[in-house]
Design a protein around this nucleic acid. Structure first.
Lengths: 342, 342
DNA sequence: ATGAAAGCGCTAACAG
DNA sequence: CTGTTAGCGCTTTCAT
C-alpha cells in the first residue's frame, strides 16, 4: 500500500490547533456549528497552507455516499446518447459528482457491481429497452431513473417532449400541404401507442393507423437505409415522410435517392432530433431539434433528488423542441408523386 | 447515515465461524495463505448464502486503490471520441474497473478533484490539445496517459498508427493515378511535422510542403465545410483531396458540391477514420478505417500498467488501419480538372 | 492454519 | 464553543 502522502484532516487540525472534528465541521459547513470567526479562519488558513483536500473515499465509507453516479448506455449507440452523456457529465461536474459510464449488461449483475462499488444511483438509457428489460432495472436498492423513455415501471423517468415535437412536425407538414405523411420509425415504436406520432396525427387530423409506416431493425443509418428501401417501395402517393429519429433519416435519404425519388421535389423528409450533420446531407435535412443535453442534465438532477429522498416527478419535460427548417421539406404540389418505376 | 443493510465481512466471518481476516484472505485469494479446503469451503458457502459482496469503498480506503479511472474528453467532441470511450468502457468492465468521464476543464483543478475522489489514474484525450495544455496534465501524482496523440510530455501515450494509415491512403491514391493530392486537415495539424501526412508523402514521393493544404478551425462538419470552401477556391489542378479526419470530410463534400466540383469525377476524396455514415454520403466516402475502440481499450490497459508500476511503452500501435474503398475515389484521368467558374 | 489488533481518513453523536 | 470517542468495512502485519 502506497501512502498517498497527501495531508489529512489530522494535519490540518494540528496546524490550526483545533480538533479534527472541528475541521470536519468547518469543512462541511455544519449548520449547527457555532464557532468563532477567528477559529474558522485559522482552520481555513491551515487548509489553504497545506493544500488540503478531503479524502472522498474516507468520507464515503463514513457516510455511505460516494458522490458517484452511473449512466448505463446501450452497447450499440448513436449521437443522441452521446449528447445525453455530455449533458449528464456537465451537470455532474456542476454539482460535484462523478459520472461513471458503462455499456448495458445484465441488469442484476451490473446493479450489484454498482452497489458493491458504492455508486449512489444509476441512470439507465431506456430509449431502446423493452418493458421486460426495464423491469429488471427496477429491483434494486439503488435509485434508478429511466432516461429517454416514459414508463411507470420505475418510480422516476425523464423524457423529452415528443408530443410537442411531433405536433411541431405535423404543423410544419400541414403548412406545406402534406396531409398524410408516411412514417419511418425505430424498432421499439409501437404505432398507435407511440407518443412520437400522436402530436403529428392530432395536428393533421389523421389516425396513426391510416399512415403508411415502416419500422427499422436498428437505430443506425444502415437500419434507416434498409427500412427506407422498404418504405420507398411501399409509398402510395405520400408526399412526405416523417422520421422518428435522425440517424434513420440519413439512411433513408440514400434509399430514396437510389430509388430515384427526389427530395424534396417528390417527397419531403422531416426528422426528429437535430445534429450538425443535418446541415450537410443533400438536401440538408429539416429537423425538430430536441433538447437532448438538457435531458441528460435533468436526469442527473432527478437522480440526485431520488438519492436525497426528495420528490421525483414521474416524467420531466424539458425545453421545447424547435423546428429547424432546411431543404428537405417543400410545399406539396399537384405534380408531386412518389410513384416510380421499380 | 443510512445503514446499507448489506452483509459485511463480519457477517460472513460469524456465519462461517472464522475470523474476518481469514475471510479477507480467502476472498482476495491471498497467495501466501495456507488454509484447509474445508475452511475455505465454509467461507465460500457463507459468502454465497449471505450474498456477500465486498464494500469497495472500505477496500479503497484501506488500500488506496479505488478501482476508478477517469477519461477526460474535449468539450466539443465527435464520433471518434465516442468510439474511444466505448472501447475504454468495455475494457474497464472486462477488468473490473469503473470508468468516470468528464469534459476537459482546468487540468490542475480537475486532477486535484480526481486525487480527492480517489481516482487511480486518468486518460486524457489529447488529440486536440496543444503542448502547453498537455504539459499541464503532466504535473500530478496520478498516472496520466495521453490518448490519441504521441508525445513525450507524458511518460505514457497511446496513439493510432497514422503512419501506416496515411501510407495506405497514399498507396490508394497512387494506384488511381493521383500524384499530388490537396490536404484538408484539422486545426492542430502542423504540416510537415504531421505524422498523418508523412506516410502519404513518402508513398507519393512528394514533400508535404509542396501540397496545397488547408487547416480547419474545428473538428466538426461545419469546420470542414468552411475549410472546404477555402480549399476548393485554392485548388490548382489537384485531382484528389486527402482529409485527416472524417467529420471534416462530410463538410468538405458539401463545399465541393456547392462549388460545382463533382466527386469523384473532378476530384477524389479520401479520409482517415471510418464510420457508418461514410456509407450514406453522396457519393459514399472512401476511408481508412482506424481501430479506434481498440485504442480506447489499449489506453486503459496502459493506464493500469502505469498504476501498477509496470512498464508502459511510450507509444502503442494497435491493429492495422484498413482501406475501405467506396465511391468518392476514382482513377485520375486527363479530362479531370478542379478548376471551375466561381 | 487461524486469530488479534491496529488502523486507512473521515463524521457524528455526546460531553464538557 | 470545542474536544472525546466510537466506529464505517476492510486489509495486513504479527502472534499463536
Amino acid at each position: 500500500m502506497r501512502k498517498s502522502g497527501r495531508p489529512t484532516m489530522k494535519d490540518v487540525a494540528k496546524l490550526s490547533e483545533v480538533d479534527v472534528s472541528v475541521v470536519s465541521r468547518v469543512l462541511s459547513s455544519d449548520p449547527k456549528l457555532a464557532i468563532t470567526d477567528e477559529t474558522r479562519d485559522r482552520v481555513l488558513a491551515a487548509v489553504a497552507e497545506l493544500d488540503y483536500r478531503p479524502n472522498r473515499t474516507a468520507r464515503a465509507l463514513r457516510t455511505s455516499r460516494s458522490g458517484l453516479i452511473a449512466f448505463v448506455l446501450p452497447q450499440k449507440t448513436s449521437e443522441v446518447y452521446f449528447r445525453l452523456v455530455a449533458g449528464a457529465a456537465g451537470q455532474c461536474t456542476e454539482l460535484g459528482y462523478q459520472l461513471v459510464v458503462a455499456g448495458i449488461n445484465e441488469p442484476e449483475k451490473q446493479l450489484r457491481d454498482y452497489e458493491s462499488a458504492g455508486i449512489d444511483g444509476v441512470l439507465i438509457a431506456a430509449g431502446g429497452l423493452d418493458d421486460d428489460e426495464l423491469q429488471r432495472w427496477a429491483g434494486s436498492n439503488l435509485p434508478v431513473v429511466a432516461v429517454n423513455r416514459s414508463t411507470d415501471l420505475l418510480p422516476t423517468a425523464c423524457d423529452l417532449d415528443y408530443f410537442t415535437a411531433s405536433s411541431l412536425a405535423g404543423k410544419h407538414l400541414k403548412d406545406l400541404g402534406h396531409t398524410r405523411p408516411a412514417v419511418l420509425s425505430g424498432p421499439w415504436s409501437q404505432p398507435g401507442s407511440d407518443q412520437r406520432l400522436t402530436g403529428l396525427c392530432e395536428e393533421l387530423g389523421v389516425n396513426s393507423d391510416e399512415l403508411t409506416a415502416v419500422s427499422s431493425h436498428g437505430i443506425g443509418a444502415a437500419a434507416g437505409y434498409e427500412a427506407g428501401i422498404r418504405l420507398a417501395d411501399q409509398l402510395d402517393g405520400e408526399t412526405a415522410i416523417f422520421v422518428t429519429t435522425i440517424s434513420l433519416a440519413f439512411g433513408l435519404l440514400k434509399a430514396l435517392s437510389e430509388r430515384g425519388i427526389s427530395v424534396p421535389d417528390d417527397v419531403s423528409v422531416l426528422s426528429l432530433h437535430d445534429e450538425e450533420l443535418a446541415n450537410f446531407t443533400s438536401p440538408a435535412l429539416t429537423t425538430i431539434a430536441m433538447p437532448t443535453e438538457q435531458l441528460g442534465a435533468t436526469a442527473v438532477s432527478q437522480l440526485l433528488n431520488a438519492i436525497e429522498g426528495r420528490d421525483t416527478p414521474q416524467v420531466v419535460v424539458n425545453d421545447a423542441p424547435v423546428l429547424v427548417a432546411r431543404q428537405s421539406t417543400a410545399p406539396a404540389s399537384s405534380h408531386q408523386s412518389a410513384t416510380h418505376a421499380p
